[in-house]
């Protein structure tokens, strides 16, 4: 196509200029500033001094950081598959037009419009000892209530439950959309072969929406690595740090301990991890779909 009007012209760049300004000033510049900051011993209230890579070595040697890293990886490793599997299940179940299914679709997406503080408040009311919904139910049936928010193991689980409840809408919707794109004749052929439901699922449906599964997984990995509000508001990272995610570590180091140089170093490490995780996932799965 040799359209003359598509000739390269500087003036065409004017269309992207406004965005580019914001991009440079609010993203690129702070990103490099953050890297610069991570090489300094600085507090919130004034300039610091250059310390080289000390912040990075200290962060990597900090048992609290390592614990937070482990918590975050466990959280991602459990919550992302849960979101994908449940989302897929719901999409398969609700992939038809009836009154009931459209009600359910609306219901499962509705939690996504709530803000994190409302979500955590709701789930705190469920999990808090003594007054919580689960405590009340446990007592009704004669069980000893579990202190969900303050028992190690359960606390991260509780944060995860609230997160899945909150985030399930988007995966479900994306899967539903993908299911609509599966060519109908594939199913018709399968019906002629008298293929079982399971066979149809594994041989036709899943391969057809493989790209969406990868997309949803990557989106969720990136999102869930940034877990912060739920943990801070529900468990405050406790007990003994077993539900403290990486972002909360960054927040604490920067704004509680005033050590923003180290906070910046930790956030660069998080950035790297997210990048690697998303890319690894993408490469692995794109290879799988090719094979």
């Amino acid at each position: 196509m040799a359209e003359s009007y598509r000739r390269s012209q500087w003036s065409h760049g004017l269309f992207i200029l406004p965005y580019l300004c914001f991009f440079l000033v609010l993203l690129v510049f702070p990103l490099f500033w953050g890297m610069w900051l991570s090489l300094h011993k600085a507090d919130l209230f004034g300039p610091g001094r250059f310390v080289g890579l000390t912040n990075y070595t200290r962060v990597l040697a900090d048992p609290v950081f390592l614990q937070a890293l482990r918590n975050t990886i466990i959280f991602v490793a459990v919550s992302v598959p849960a979101l994908v599997v449940i989302g897929l299940f719901l999409a398969l179940a609700l992939n038809r037009t009836t009154r009931a299914t459209s009600f359910f679709r609306g219901l499962f997406f509705s939690s996504s419009v709530l803000s994190v503080t409302i979500v955590t408040l709701i789930w705190r009311f469920v999990f808090i000892p003594g007054d919580g919904l689960l405590a009340v139910l446990f007592k009704q049936v004669g069980l000893t209530p579990i202190s969900f928010l303050s028992t190690s193991g359960w606390s991260l689980f509780s944060v995860g439950a609230a997160t899945v409840w909150w985030c399930i809408g988007l995966p479900m919707m994306l899967f539903l959309a993908a299911l609509q794109q599966v060519p109908q004749d594939l199913y018709e052929a399968a019906a002629l072969d008298n293929a079982s439901g399971w066979r149809v699922l594994t041989r036709i449906t899943l391969p057809s929406i493989a790209r969406t599964i990868v997309l949803v997984t990557i989106i969720q990995i990136v999102l869930q690595f940034q877990l912060f509000g739920q943990a801070q508001l529900m468990t405050n990272g406790g007990p003994s740090g077993t539900s403290r995610p990486l972002v909360m570590y960054i927040y604490e180091v920067g704004f509680v301990r005033w050590d923003i140089g180290r906070g910046a170093a930790a956030s660069q490490i998080l950035f790297l991890i997210i990048l690697v995780a998303a890319m690894a996932q993408y490469i692995v799965s794109s290879r799988k779909t090719e094979a």
Binding site: G34, L37, V222, F225, Q226, A264, S267, L270, F271, I274
Partner: peptide, 16 residues
């Protein structure tokens, strides 16, 4: 820029 999480820039942004 899609890959840059908020955490990586938030401290510098706050100072700015």
């Amino acid at each position: 820029g899609l890959a840059v999480p908020e955490q990586a820039v938030i401290i510098a942004r706050h100072q700015m």
